[in-house]
Design a protein around this nucleic acid. Structure first.
Lengths: 242, 242
DNA sequence: GATAAAGCTCGTACACCGTGCGAGTGGATT
DNA sequence: AATCCACTCGCACGGTGTACGAGCTTTATC
């Protein structure tokens, strides 16, 4: 499936939707689905073309008929993550609720597919699902009363906060482990480093001790919520002043 | 340099600062510096242990005396990016200005080392420089009047927004190219896909046409600013109500 | 000064990776 | 019957990270 430009993204290369003629034994959708399963169960570094081929019961290089690159495959897979982050109709939910629902939806989609954070930093999110999500969000802000460029900036701010809050969180979870016991153990392992850092920033140590008392997993949630409310408040203020 | 836990981060493994004795021909600092140079000039996929060894004038595997893994090397390198994002003293600048300066500083550091976004999604930022940045920022918010957990949440919100705004921007720049001419060409290449997407979201098309009229590079800056102000406003509101 | 130990370098080798290429297959079209 | 086309895939190439162990050089111990 050819047609080349100097740009390296699938989305810049293909006029989508062409009519399939027969039933070949592979398909793009099937490949992408299998890749996601592999990623979900074994993580990013377990995804190789050979393993993917094996899981599909075909030769590794057969995949290249449907996909130009491994990178292109990953673009498709990433867009599928955005497909899981659908936003409720802002017309029925009200802009603030539906913006918040968007944030939770995107966050959950990413948390369910932790490997996706490695992709977000590697390739742009320009697939149809990513665009649909961002378009729905922008709709919500249009309903709120934002206009012109401000409309895009506001939507962009929401996306930014959501990604920025979720990405480091997932990176952390990926190396610490997902249970509370893991987190506790981790805090213990980090203690000496923390004490060294606290030599320069004394207040840090006190806060660190606070952290040891609370449940980190619920704090993560509260923290996300706090920032989300701040962003929404900030945007709402902007709205009233115009 | 041994000592192992089940955690895979450098920062959880080492009690830092041990006295070096002689002058061996390599050093951690030297290795990290060379790696950054290579990354800056040739990008992420050009960094291999062999190439790095060659640039250092030594064998590829010599590096493994100073660093357990390639991943560990990358952790060190990422922390060096945070070293370039120092925050002004909040006591002299006032909390709002110094939070804003933090945001610009971090953003610029990342933009100057575009490969860093691939790392942020891959490993946690727990190195001493990252911690210093976050500690200074937290100081700023303490000065602003935030207390207890809210203090951390507020700082975290700022970091989240900044990362979340910068990461996709860099991903985009990495594939589109950095000049305005590239961006224009890109917009043209994306047009057909855009029109397909606009079938579902009619408002999208109109906005796309707006985009073609403005200078994208300056819009990026304005967009970041807009969100930044919203976040700061949102946090300030939170402050007043308590 | 001799001997042992520790610190450090690096060539070799292994398993694995993405993927270009070209031969092979089976059904549809002419 | 011949041609074509959509599709599959084995092989091979040039790379990758890094385990291992043999070597060298400096320090510590007697």
């Amino acid at each position: 499936m050819p047609s080349k430009t100097r740009f390296t993204s699938v989305w810049a290369r293909e006029a989508p939707a062409k009519p399939p003629r027969e039933q070949p034994s592979l398909s793009r959708g099937q490949i992408v689905r299998a890749a996601m399963e592999l990623l979900d169960t074994e993580g990013m570094e377990a995804l190789s073309m050979r393993k993917l081929g094996a899981r599909l019961g075909s030769g590794a290089t057969s995949i290249y008929w449907y996909v130009a690159n491994k990178e292109e495959l990953l673009e498709l897979v990433l867009d599928e993550v955005y497909a899981q982050a659908r936003v409720p109709d802002p017309a029925v939910a009200g802009w603030r609720d539906s913006a918040a629902a968007f944030a939770y939806g995107l966050r959950n989609a990413i948390l369910e597919h932790p490997w996706s954070v490695a992709l977000i930093g590697t390739m742009p999110s320009l697939g149809p699902n990513a665009m649909a999500v961002s378009a729905t969000l922008t709709n919500a802000f249009e309903l709120a009363g934002f206009t012109g460029m401000t409309l895009d900036y506001a939507a962009s701010a929401m996306i930014s906060y959501t990604l920025g809050a979720t990405i480091p969180e997932v990176s952390w979870l990926n190396t610490v482990g997902r249970s509370s016991a893991d987190a506790e153990e981790w805090m213990k392992a980090m203690r000496p480093q923390m004490e060294v850092a606290a030599a320069d920033y004394p207040a840090l140590l006190a806060r660190y001790q606070d952290f040891e008392k609370i449940d980190i997993n619920s704090a993560r949630h509260v923290c996300f919520d706090f920032g989300l409310i701040a962003v929404l408040d900030g945007l709402e203020a902007r709205l009233r002043q115009s």
